[in-house]
């Protein structure tokens, strides 16, 4: 697989179809893999493909200049679909080297997202590496942690989030690592008006995380990078999953599936959207 991958990447670079290929190289800490940028065929020799290639490289396509080739797992392709849907890049400017993937690991454990994977073979790609893998319906409940919190009382929920988010140091790794957080200026960085004060305390942290998750509604494809990147091990996935669940239930939309579809938040349904349930 890796030989095939390297060959295809080299071909793209030597034929000048792309200016850079974004892939993985061996990391230097534990057995991590690390993002790698190949500008020449020689650089491609650094590339690896293994269980540790967990990073979602789609984050780099909105930063890269020129035509980009990108090694993408099924889940990463979902992010790319989202980015194209939102007109951040043109489909023609990216060559997707899709990889048939049967799961990646974080610190030797299967990544959470892989338990519910429905895209072992990416939805769209220009080149496919490896043989297509059929996706099976997962028997596990994707929204188990969400339901656990929903079942608490409002006071318990408040306490849970207050405790959980009090750990946050606002390093914004969750924001920086997210392929869909591409805004030039984040709401939390503006000073006039200053939506969220800079002080790190439970209240400000909660407001930040509420709005961060809210901004991801109908856009988050569940790659789990925010949670992986968080140095304080905050379960940020739960917030994003809650939003995804609500979007599915209320608007019948799943992000990262259809490149032609309008994200739910940029769309409406005159007759069927919830109305009387919560609006007087």
């Amino acid at each position: 697989m890796i030989e095939d991958l390297k060959e295809k990447a080299k071909e793209l670079l030597t034929s000048k179809k792309v200016d850079v290929v974004i892939g993985y190289e061996a990391g230097t800490y534990k057995d991590y893999a690390s993002p790698s940028f190949a500008k020449t065929a020689k650089d491609v020799d650094r590339f690896v493909w293994n269980k540790n290639c967990v990073n979602n490289l789609a984050i780099y396509i909105t930063k890269a200049k020129g035509k980009v080739g990108i090694i993408a797992k099924g889940c990463d392709v979902k992010s790319i679909i989202g980015i194209i849907q939102e007109n951040q890049i043109n489909r023609e400017d990216v060559v997707i080297i899709g990889i048939a993937c049967d799961g990646v690991e974080i610190d030797g454990e299967k990544a959470d997202k892989c338990n519910f994977c429905d895209v072992h073979t990416p939805k769209i790609y220009d080149i496919l590496i490896g043989d297509k893998i059929e996706s099976k319906e997962s028997s596990q409940d994707k929204y188990k942690e969400v339901a656990e919190i929903e079942n608490k009382s409002p006071e318990e929920r408040w306490k849970y989030w207050k405790d959980t988010l009090s750990k946050c140091i606002r390093c914004y790794a969750c924001r920086q690592v997210c392929p869909l957080c591409y805004c030039d200026k984040c709401f939390v960085d503006t000073t006039v008006p200053q939506w969220i004060p800079m002080s790190v305390n439970e209240d400000n942290n909660m407001m930040f995380h509420m709005i961060r998750a809210y901004h991801m509604a109908s856009r988050c494809i569940g790659c789990g990078e925010c949670q992986r990147a968080c140095p304080m091990n905050i379960p940020l996935n739960i917030l994003s999953k809650k939003m995804t669940k609500e979007v599915e239930e209320m608007f019948g939309y799943t992000p990262g599936v259809d490149i032609e579809a309008k994200p739910a938040i940029q769309d409406f349904n005159k007759k069927e959207d919830p109305d009387k349930e919560f609006i007087m």
Partner: peptide, 21 residues
Amino acid sequence: YYARRKFALMNKMLDFMGIEK
């Protein structure tokens, strides 16, 4: 119409964080 979707989500979010209905 756009607002309605945003409010629906905001409503769910506030509830999920534990802010009283």
